[in-house]
Design a binder for these strands. Structure first.
Lengths: 149, 149
DNA sequence: TTACATCCTGTAGCCACTACAGGAGCAAGC
DNA sequence: GCTTGCTCCTGTAGTGGCTACAGGATGTAA
């Protein structure tokens, strides 16, 4: 049995995030020591490693909860897991395509900047124009639409 | 002078988002009609179009605020704008590279799934393993790390 | 025993919105 | 003048997935 700090070190997941996972039901309630500290075993390390890896692949906690529930019934068909993974792949593909388009636009903008004053700045000019595809069709940018890492 | 609904229609930005932009200082406080309704002119349409386009390119509101402030002084050098755009390009490139790596992993996972029961599911097996690169080096996933659009 | 690390709970903040509740104003037709 | 239905108002709370405290208790080593 290891404390939360050790679990954090072994899995690369922040302590606060582990507690958050417990609160939100992705991790089961941990065992406790006499003084009330959380204690974890090998199964917890495996479960958290699974969660971390799935999160890195972009799966939402909801999807991860589904997959974890399925693991509890090893006889069930893995169709759901496969479907989730395919769904995820489609989302990743769409995101890459979108970012690639943005990249092109950004590059063009930067290339046309002659380095003068703001008044003559092509980048600002380019941004001031409405989006090239039909503006009405544009959906608002979801929180996860951001780019920064 | 047009009301907020018309501004929303012309720019493709939700009404709630327009009000949110005003609250957070990206848009100036709108003029009001006698009954207290917001009224907008051509300059507002241009400003919001600029904001929307910049958001679509992944610029954060903070960066947009900076660029808008620079536009008020057309004699200033456009170096800051250029730097912001270049920064953004670097971020987009990094994000594309990361997503491409994820895509590869997802594809491999899906390809090895034979469609049996959860107990034998290769996707779950693959997820249960720690990440291939050094696990300790993995940084936690930022809010914008998600994939879905 | 002193120092420091680790852990606890609880709450609030982050980003960029989004979604209400509960009400007021406005325009058109009857 | 009245109804219908749309638009608009303010204010607050929720979203996802964490992250960052405050303020305290516990554990461990010199």
């Amino acid at each position: 049995m290891i404390p939360i700090g050790e679990l954090s070190r072994r899995t690369g997941v922040h302590i606060e995030t582990i507690r958050f996972y417990e609160r939100s039901g992705v991790l089961p309630e941990a065992q406790r020591s006499d003084s009330g500290r959380r204690l974890y075993g090998d199964a917890d390390v495996r479960r958290l490693t699974f969660i971390r890896h799935a999160r890195q692949l972009g799966f939402e906690l909801d999807a991860i909860r589904t997959m974890l529930a399925l693991q509890e019934q090893p006889d069930a068909s893995c169709g759901t897991v496969d479907a989730l993974a395919r769904q995820q792949l489609v989302a990743v593909d769409a995101r890459i395509a979108q970012l690639t388009a943005l990249r092109g636009e950004l590059t063009r903008m930067i290339d046309t900047c002659a380095g003068g004053s703001v008044g003559a700045c092509r980048i600002i000019e380019a941004l001031a124009e409405p989006t090239t595809p039909a503006p009405a069709a544009a959906e608002p940018c979801s929180p996860s639409c951001a780019v920064a890492s």
